[in-house]
Design a protein around this nucleic acid. Structure first.
Lengths: 205, 205
DNA sequence: ATCATTATCTAATGATTGGTAGATATGGCT
DNA sequence: AGCCATATCTACCAATCATTAGATAATGAT
């Protein structure tokens, strides 16, 4: 009863982040309370509040700690991917990396899907974030010439391919929510073969 | 003050259903209260409760009144689709119909996507419903031989094509939630051309 | 007109919510 | 050993929630 465990703010913040990610990925932001998070971390509700400031602070924590550096092209260039030529990175290879990244962190991927859907509501704390995000991603992509095609006739086409790829990933992730279970990577490979047909792409690459 | 508007149960039930669909498609089930629905219908909170019994009753109302007969193969056979041969219905044509149906009712489509995602939580009232649904849909499909291929080498393949098609629809619907806007039908046509390549499919049909 | 049915309301309840104020105890530092 | 900063707690608050109980008024049938 009189034994309080006092941990460093860094550790606590990490614990809170992890607990929030777990709970919200399953119940959504509207489906959880600060008490739920507090119980999982093993402290009182005001204890959690001391770190996050408000319930919305939980989301800020998740977004900044997790997604701002999640699966970026920079990360891809450093990490690479087994079987891909690091000298000649290209768009489908980056998508392969992104999919592998998502598949290896199913909880974070589910969290993203759940929040993305919940944030349709204009009064949702992350509404603006998800509205802004596509433009920001495009902007970030434009820094990497190898993501975009050189030929002009490919250029317009490629935006469509990117859009279709992202739609496919979202679709697979929805499927992962409820089953029947599918293999994320295997399923993506099917679509990749259709969206980036081998002969055409090989010729470009 | 003293003027109560008293309507027939049928009308009221319809009003409540519509209001609930509108609100939940935007904020999710956890994001709304009975008072929100009551305000939109213009009555008191217990007034609404008199019809739906409990908050979960709202969802039952939506599911039974809307989705149980939504875009079924039967409906497809009766309605048909401009440009399709009613004598020889086939799978891609049915999907065209389904997509057109979804695109014509964006609010109901969004409602479905939002609820589907929210229902990952095992304690969500519709969790079991969305778990059961895929098997039920497959069972219903099997009543219509024209949905499934005759050739054996196609049979295994076709399940994959169906799964990919459904994933694509979910993916497009996620995209519709937040923009940038895309044309549902046009986008589906792109994927259809990939999943059901014309020469192959024409040969079968 | 009267009456029974019932749609709708007001009022109240207990639970839960996010958030605040102030007390307390813990761990690092000297 | 003692002190300070602060992590964590208990207690409390106002708001909101779903739900219940009981009163009231509107409608349709007689």
């Amino acid at each position: 009863m009189t034994s309080r465990t006092r941990k460093s703010p860094e550790v606590r913040r990490a614990e809170i982040t992890q607990a929030a990610a777990h709970l919200i990925s399953q119940h959504g932001y509207n489906g959880i309370s600060l008490k739920d998070v507090a119980d999982m971390v093993g402290m009182s509700q005001p204890g959690v509040l001391h770190y996050v400031g408000s319930k919305e602070g939980l989301l800020s924590l998740l977004v900044t700690d997790i997604y701002d550096a999640y699966g970026t092209p920079e990360e891809f260039l450093q990490t690479g991917l087994p079987g891909s030529d690091p000298e000649h990175p290209h768009l489908p290879a980056y998508f392969d990396y992104l999919v592998a990244h998502n598949a290896s962190q199913p909880e974070l991927t589910q969290l993203y899907t759940v929040l993305e859907t919940e944030a349709v509501a204009t009064n949702h704390p992350l509404h603006d974030y998800f509205i802004r995000r596509p433009a920001e991603v495009w902007e970030r992509y434009s820094e990497f010439p190898w993501l975009l095609p050189k030929g002009m006739e490919w250029a317009t086409d490629m935006r469509v391919r990117v859009r279709m790829s992202l739609e496919v990933m979202d679709g697979i992730q929805i499927r992962l929510l409820r089953g029947p279970k599918v293999d994320y990577i295997q399923e993506w490979d099917r679509f990749k073969a259709l969206i980036f047909p081998s002969p055409l792409w090989d010729g470009y690459r």
